[in-house]
Simulated scan of single mutants.
Amino acid sequence: MSRPQNLRKPFISFGNPFRMISPKGLSLPPKLVALLDSFEETLTEKLKTLKPRDGDGVLSLSWMTSALEALCAIHTEVKSLIAALELPVSDWDGKWIDVYLDNSVKLLDVCIAFSSEVSRLNQGNLFLQCVLHNLDSTSAVQFTKAQSSLDGWRQHVSSKNLRIEKCFTILGQLIDTLDLPRIKNSSKGRVLMRAMYGVRMVTVFICNVFAVAFSSSSQKLVDLPAPEACLWAEAFTEVQVLVNGDIQKIHSSGKVTGVKELEAVDTIVKRLHTLVQQGEDIVEVEALRSSIKDLGKSSGELTQGLDFLARGIDGFFQIVLTGRDALLGKLRVGNDVSNTMQQHNHVKRQVVR
């Protein structure tokens, strides 16, 4: 399936997926309606927290960390819903289980890719520390070393992480599974599938934004259509328009990195590079001192922001992994250990390795 890389066109067009979940004339018991409404209202509130704040772009590390916190809360909430539904795993359709396990492996891969990128960006801080150390002196030798470190940082930041590039393929595969199978004779099953659909929509959306932020390219933004039947549809659409719009503005302005804290450091690095090239005959001494101070502050904020983001990614990884393990454990207890389950155990060991 071809996927146009244009914000105005979604990767896929699947109409209203709930035409298969809620057949005409089939209603849910009041208790299940209350459970579903409560979940979707919570999902709506979490989506509202993703709206960009004044003066703080969507591609700031603080926003990305907050987005991960919201995503973790949503995944935790759906676990609570599953418990409240009291739907035994033995009643789950085999296709539901396969889709869940396949998607969880893909999400673990995405988390690993994001972690590798955060680690790579943190490694770039070594160049910045060398710059600050060498600019303690105004000798020609130290200026030369500082210039080399500045060049090293820019080359490091602009290099590509192949794992991030692969994320877009994985996300495309997750989008392909958003269309849900027909649910027959199971009111609880319809509630579960609808709730999990909402979680998957938000998960793909946020992960795509992260991948775009790390790849410094807005060409692979997705525009996912939210079914009107969902209580969270309006909030999802509004947030998606705001976030994707902000990202397009950031990249259309010609910024190198996209991520706010990285861009701040890059701006100072450019300024310092120009000043350092003047060597010992530098005339803008105050500008040099000011830039050195700014670099120390901005690099510190970058390091702190990346540390918080790394913890958030690890937290999400653990939520996905424990949810997957819990399902596999219930299957094992229920003596429903199929070849599929054994294969997924093997896949999990490969991913976590």
Rank of each mutant, 00 (worst) to 15 (best):
residue 75 H to W: 14
residue 327 L to Y: 07
residue 283 V to M: 14
residue 186 S to F: 02
residue 180 L to H: 01
residue 299 S to R: 09
residue 217 S to Y: 05
residue 219 Q to Y: 12
residue 62 S to V: 11
residue 20 M to R: 15
residue 46 K to C: 06
residue 237 T to W: 09
residue 1 M to H: 04
residue 200 R to G: 03
residue 15 G to K: 07
residue 249 K to L: 10
residue 19 R to N: 12
residue 239 V to W: 07
residue 7 L to K: 14
residue 28 L to V: 03
residue 321 L to E: 06
residue 284 E to I: 10
residue 249 K to M: 08
residue 125 N to F: 01
residue 71 L to M: 13
residue 192 L to I: 08
residue 249 K to W: 08
residue 106 K to G: 01
residue 38 S to M: 02
residue 60 S to M: 02
residue 245 G to S: 04
residue 56 D to E: 15
residue 335 N to H: 13
residue 216 S to N: 11
residue 186 S to C: 08
residue 314 D to K: 15
residue 41 E to W: 14
residue 351 V to S: 09
residue 318 Q to T: 09
residue 101 L to W: 07
residue 279 G to F: 00
residue 310 A to R: 12
residue 223 D to K: 15
residue 37 D to V: 03
residue 65 T to C: 06
residue 50 L to D: 07
residue 209 V to F: 01
residue 348 K to T: 09
residue 19 R to E: 15
residue 148 S to W: 00
residue 143 F to V: 00
residue 173 Q to M: 08
residue 15 G to Y: 04
residue 91 D to E: 15
residue 60 S to A: 05
residue 265 V to L: 02
residue 85 L to H: 05
residue 139 S to R: 05
residue 1 M to T: 01
residue 75 H to M: 10
residue 237 T to Y: 05
residue 134 N to T: 02
residue 131 V to I: 00
residue 162 L to C: 08
residue 57 G to N: 12
residue 277 Q to K: 15
residue 228 E to W: 05
residue 87 L to A: 07
residue 166 K to I: 08
residue 22 S to W: 10
residue 307 D to G: 06
residue 308 F to R: 15
residue 128 L to R: 01
residue 294 D to M: 07
residue 92 W to S: 02
residue 54 D to H: 07
residue 82 I to P: 04
residue 246 D to C: 03
residue 18 F to Q: 00
residue 216 S to W: 06
residue 146 A to G: 02
residue 86 E to H: 12
residue 313 I to C: 05
residue 322 T to W: 14
residue 297 K to N: 11
residue 139 S to P: 04
residue 321 L to P: 06
residue 206 I to F: 00
residue 201 M to V: 12
residue 62 S to G: 01
residue 124 G to H: 02
residue 203 T to K: 05
residue 178 L to C: 06
residue 65 T to E: 13
residue 70 A to H: 00
residue 2 S to I: 15
residue 226 A to P: 08
residue 350 Q to A: 12
residue 249 K to T: 13
residue 112 I to P: 00
residue 100 Y to N: 15
residue 239 V to R: 11
residue 313 I to T: 05
residue 5 Q to V: 03
residue 161 N to I: 04
residue 176 D to A: 14
residue 167 C to D: 12
residue 292 I to L: 08
residue 283 V to L: 14
residue 179 D to C: 04
residue 328 L to D: 12
residue 146 A to L: 07
residue 278 Q to E: 15
residue 136 D to L: 10
residue 278 Q to Y: 06
residue 48 K to R: 14
residue 188 K to E: 11
residue 127 F to P: 00
residue 206 I to S: 01
residue 22 S to K: 10
residue 274 T to P: 02
